[in-house]
Design a protein around this nucleic acid. Structure first.
Lengths: 157, 157
DNA sequence: TGAAATAGTCAATTTATTTGACAATCAAGA
DNA sequence: TCTTGATTGTCAAATAAATTGACTATTTCA
């Protein structure tokens, strides 16, 4: 029994993560383009997908942290998303410095196309490795995410 | 037993992948910067890390496919990496159209700093979820990567 | 009230990536 | 051989994405 190591054991985890994420990216982009939502900027998918989750608004500040880009970049990203009709920006009445962003009609439509594509990939994954393995992958990924929090909780501008 | 769903079950897998990868990115960047390898371009980490694997050369064409960027972008990326002393470019004597890229001394040094940081995160992960779960995560990621191959094998320029 | 901190904008620059046109090399058939 | 077509990569110009630095408005809190 020579037990040859499978190819994916030789590849660094970050590279696996990159390519795996890319699968979703390709599927989602493709679906969005077929539905004529072809003008989403690079990080646009994340914004659209993320907003759809919490049924409602998201403070701009959250994007800044999650995307790990400068607040200026976040501002510009939201700008183009607003210009292209996906988002709406409103001031938080509680604190008039803050902005929250919300999906427009078009934004929600795009989000649902994207979610459908995502779920298709999810389904293909479950079909091959089973629910349990997917659940344990989620757990492992969550742990990785958590590790970064301890690694550095600083870097908050 | 209310069994509240853990937070990471609510997050789309691509988002988990993104953030998980970011953990590695942060750790590696940080390590590299402390060691004065602070001039690596965005995709530089991938190139450096990838090359270190196969002890030797990598055809430029491979980068193009793996990074999913245009050949021009790949060319420029390699350009700056060469300029900054990380890479060397040589023509393939078999086929003089082809280029292969190799790490320089500096490149190898940076690669090993990067690898060390990566392994530190790997270790932290193993410490919390165990070898088996990491192995099954790898398997699941490999399946995801495979899915994209079937999803579209076209798009080869 | 009046600093200091927070949230975001504006303008300019740098970095990353793409598109289009091209040059060199190789492969294969008349 | 020649010639045609495909492959591999470069050059140059344009666009997109992200950063830096300086600034405005708002809130907090001593």
């Amino acid at each position: 029994m020579t037990e040859p190591k499978p190819w994916f054991d030789e590849i660094p985890i970050p590279a696996l993560l990159r390519h795996a994420r890319n699968t979703y990216g390709i599927a989602m982009r493709q679906a969005l383009e077929s539905a004529d939502y072809d003008d989403l900027p690079k990080n646009g998918l994340y914004v659209i997908g993320g907003l759809a989750l919490g049924a409602g608004d998201v403070p701009l500040g959250q994007l800044i942290k999650e995307l790990r880009i400068s607040k200026q970049a976040a501002g510009q990203l939201v700008d183009t998303l607003v210009t292209r009709g996906y988002l709406q920006r409103t001031v938080d009445p509680e604190d008039r410095r803050k902005l929250t962003i919300t999906l427009t009609e078009r934004g929600r439509a795009a989000a649902s196309v994207q979610a459908a594509a995502r779920e298709q990939v999810d389904a293909a994954l479950v079909a091959r490795v089973g629910e349990d393995d997917v659940a344990s992958m989620r757990r492992a990924l969550a742990v990785l995410i958590d590790i970064s929090r301890e690694w550095l909780d600083r870097d908050d501008d």
